[in-house]
Design a protein around this nucleic acid. Structure first.
Lengths: 190, 190
DNA sequence: CTTCATTTTCATTCTGAATTGAAAATTTGA
DNA sequence: TCAAATTTTCAATTCAGAATGAAAATGAAG
């Protein structure tokens, strides 16, 4: 992309640029693609709706790329189309959900669904099939393995319920209550 | 790799195989490479220490790959070398940390360090530089952006402290206490 | 010191995911 | 219905991280 040189950028443009960069850099850590993160960041930073061409130019990406990532963001409910009263064009315009709470719960929920639940379920299944195939007569090694699987599985479930309980607090932006809970938790070793 | 046909596998071999597969599949979701996850799973499932050649054969991977992933796992303190009294060889042998609690805290801690802290810090910095460059006189748009950055940042910090408080409970395998906390949390919408 | 077993390194290759860009599809207005 | 504007699709390409495998390094035994 052809950015104006840093010196001629306004303070806001400069800050936006840094913000988009930062968001892109941490994208992979959050399990989303770099471009998807940057498109989101750009829309988040902008106080008015942007169209596809604007995004393409700003991030120096292709139309296909912009389109596909915008659709993914809409699917995640982090971005939505808006009507823009502009007689000269019928381009679609987009704005970002500016609620960090919503963003975070979305990411956590996706992860919980994809990373915790299926694994816990599968581990239990593997354990069950082991007993089944061994006809209930487990050797000491088999028994040990089975118990290890169960420990893993039950831990994942405990962890998952904890997450599930916390999510509504985030979803409802209940900062007060979160802080209360925070105080309940012991600091240091317990 | 040349597996024995499924029919001739023991129940334990079969279960191990499924376990390794499953662990490998969810690897990317947990932010670790497929092979690293499989090596860990294989060692976890084995009740005796394994050497590099064994791991290479079992997972059908190269020596370099096995070596590099074993070192990473040791770095993460999920696997360690053990002495094996065997006069015929001086191969190194490895065992896995079988404590799921340790495994989980490790993953969470890595993520918190990589995904939360740096971002929160950077967002604050971008906001500060914006004020600085604008010489304290912010336009309404700049002010809005700055407040959005601050909202993001403070939320990330709140979320991070929550994580930090929970981690020691996990680290100390304090299942009782975790369950108590679970009960404190309201169900449904609050 | 030399030899042999073993581990580590690293330039090269492979692989899957992200991206491109142009063609096809869709939508809108006249 | 047609033409122009815009979005969507998708085969081909690019790219980044993972894996390979052979050479170099290590280190233990005689």
């Amino acid at each position: 992309m052809v950015h104006p040189p840093a010196q001629t950028r306004t303070a806001l443009e400069e800050a936006t640029h840094r913000f988009v960069e930062a968001w892109g850099n941490m994208a992979s850590a959050w399990g989303i693609s770099r471009t998807m993160a940057q498109v989101y960041a750009l829309l988040y930073a902008s106080h008015e709706p942007l169209d596809t061409d604007h995004i393409m130019a700003e991030l120096d990406i292709s139309r296909g790329n912009a389109n596909i990532n915008l659709r993914k963001l809409i699917e995640w409910e982090l971005v939505r189309k808006v009507e823009v009263a502009d007689p000269h064009t019928r381009k679609e315009h987009f704005v970002a959900e500016k609620d960090v709470w919503a963003l975070t719960t979305r990411v956590i929920r996706e992860r919980s669904e994809k990373e915790l639940k299926p694994v816990a379920a599968y581990l239990t299944e593997v354990g069950a099939q082991l007993s089944e195939r061994a006809n209930g007569r487990l050797t000491p090694e088999e028994d040990e393995f089975k118990r290890n699987l169960e420990a893993m599985s039950s831990f994942l479930r405990l962890f998952n319920s904890l997450t599930e309980r916390l999510l509504p607090l985030l979803e409802n932006r209940n900062q007060k209550q979160l802080e209360t809970i925070l105080k309940l938790l012991p600091t240091g070793k317990s």
